[in-house]
């Protein structure tokens, strides 16, 4: 029987971490793009768009990510669409991320004070101009810290894809546990690796926020 050394355990976990990082990146970027689209529908003029996004967000924030993954994985297959685990995982995570980012960003747009709208309107700017030159640049600045903060949620969210059979860090953890019978060591390492990835992001989000607050106070 093969024996795993501690180094074997750590090495295999680190190799699987690649997939956690790739999946996180794909979900975050894809979710960001879709999120921008949703944001414009949500703050746009068309009623139907606003309502659609509202329910979209409600749906994805009101159900467990795990269920969304299950449905993407087994549901799409029933419609004759062949989805390998990585695709189901990516799709579900992108849809989920988009819902949260759109909502976070909406908050940021709304945080731009009303006076700004009025001021820019009085300058004779149209809706698009107001958005382009006045509202979005300010909202963008406020949005950076919570967006970086949410990336941590995305990375942690990828851990659930292990349940539908995508082999990333968490799944590697369960597989290695069963080959070594050392759950304490294995899950300890897994937790530390996640921490090493997420903590710097959390910290930078907090620092950005502090910087932003200071900048605003000095205005």
């Amino acid at each position: 029987m093969t024996e795993f050394t501690t180094w074997d355990i750590l090495r295999n976990l680190l190799l699987a971490t690649r997939w956690t990082l790739v999946l996180s990146l794909v979900s975050f970027v894809g979710g960001g793009l879709l999120g921008v689209l949703l944001l414009f529908l949500r703050i746009g003029r068309a009623r139907i768009g606003r309502i659609f996004v509202k329910y979209y967000v409600e749906l994805f924030q009101g159900t467990p990510l795990l269920m969304q993954l299950f449905l993407a994985f087994f549901g799409l297959g029933l419609f004759g669409i062949d989805v390998p685990p990585w695709l189901a995982a990516g799709t579900a995570l992108i849809l989920w991320t988009a819902a949260f980012l759109a909502e976070i960003w909406r908050g940021c747009v709304e945080a731009v004070v009303k006076g700004q709208w009025e001021a820019s309107a009085s300058l004779g700017m149209g809706y698009l101009q107001q958005m382009r030159w006045v509202i979005l640049p300010q909202a963008f600045k406020i949005a950076i810290p919570p967006t970086v903060g949410f990336s941590v949620q995305v990375i942690k969210g990828t851990a659930l894809t292990s349940i539908i059979g995508f082999v990333e860090l968490s799944k590697a953890g369960t597989v290695v546990t069963n080959a070594t019978f050392e759950p304490f060591t294995v899950y300890g390492f897994v937790a530390l690796i996640y921490f090493a990835i997420c903590w710097p992001l959390s910290k930078s989000s907090q620092m950005l926020e502090r910087k932003l607050n200071v900048a605003h106070r000095n205005h």
Partner: peptide, 23 residues
């Protein structure tokens, strides 16, 4: 706070259920 907020819930769960009995 930092440790819990920066690791996935499922790993916390597995650590408690599968890992802690070792102790």
């Amino acid at each position: 706070i930092e440790l819990i907020r920066n690791t996935p819930f499922i790993i916390q769960l597995f650590f408690i259920f599968f890992g802690l009995p070792g102790l």
